[in-house]
Design a protein around this nucleic acid. Structure first.
Lengths: 116, 116
DNA sequence: GTAAGTAGTTACCTTCAGGTAAGTAAATCT
DNA sequence: AGATTTACTTACCTGAAGGTAACTACTTAC
């Protein structure tokens, strides 16, 4: 190993933070994961739940999440073809992170967003 | 209250997630917070620690974090003027979130980033 | 007087995330 | 034959995020 970086150092933390942001960055990734945490969903269902995401962005972000092994895409040969998206184990492993994310989002809203 | 949204619903979670992302979004916010978690720092120290951030971006993001009450700026009337940045209680309240962020970032790196 | 260190600012440019609008394809309903 | 539903794709455009480089202002050291 060339220049191993210890787990406790600030440098190590900076790299781990960058890694996580690379996958979760952007306006739609977290919302999509939140939506799928609620249960497997179809394209249209996710779109309606998130509300104002265009099919282009949804399609694009779902592909990116699939490439990063966060979700899987399953095509069902039903009458109008349906596609179901679900979280992989890796996707589900964001649960604790998501929980803290939501807790902090709520805290922040109460502290700041509400007073402006 | 008009149409209260229950804490458990997917809609509530989507809003909290959006709130959190509003503050933490971008390439540099999380790294800056990580850097300051390590202790109060001066402009140049943060810049050297993060490594490749330009003074323009650092200045801009520090201002944004200050506006959101995540950090404070203190000017010291020393011989070359120094400025110290530190986390506010609200800023420090990201510690659990940050921890999960870093845990997951490491997990993700081991699962995916390492294998590509 | 000039270099070096403090903490930025300013102007300019490029890239890409994201938005908008319309089109595609296959099947089923009416 | 035309409308509807599902799940997208494609082309085009805009604005914001971020990068680069140079400049400012003050003080100390050489």
């Amino acid at each position: 190993m060339a220049k191993a970086i210890k787990k406790e150092t600030c440098q190590y933390r900076l790299i781990a933070g960058k890694d996580a942001m690379e996958v979760l960055q952007g306006k739609w990734r977290i919302p999509i994961i939140i939506s799928l945490t609620d249960g497997d969903k179809r394209f249209g269902e996710i779109q309606r739940e998130i509300g104002n995401i265009s099919p282009k962005m949804l399609s694009q972000e779902l592909k990116a999440l699939e490439e990063n092994k966060i979700i899987t895409r399953t095509l069902y040969d039903s009458m109008p073809v349906t596609v179901e998206y679900s979280l992989t184990p890796l996707g589900r492993s964001t649960d604790k992170l998501l929980e803290e994310f939501l807790k902090w989002g709520t805290h922040f809203r109460n502290e700041i967003v509400g007073n402006r």
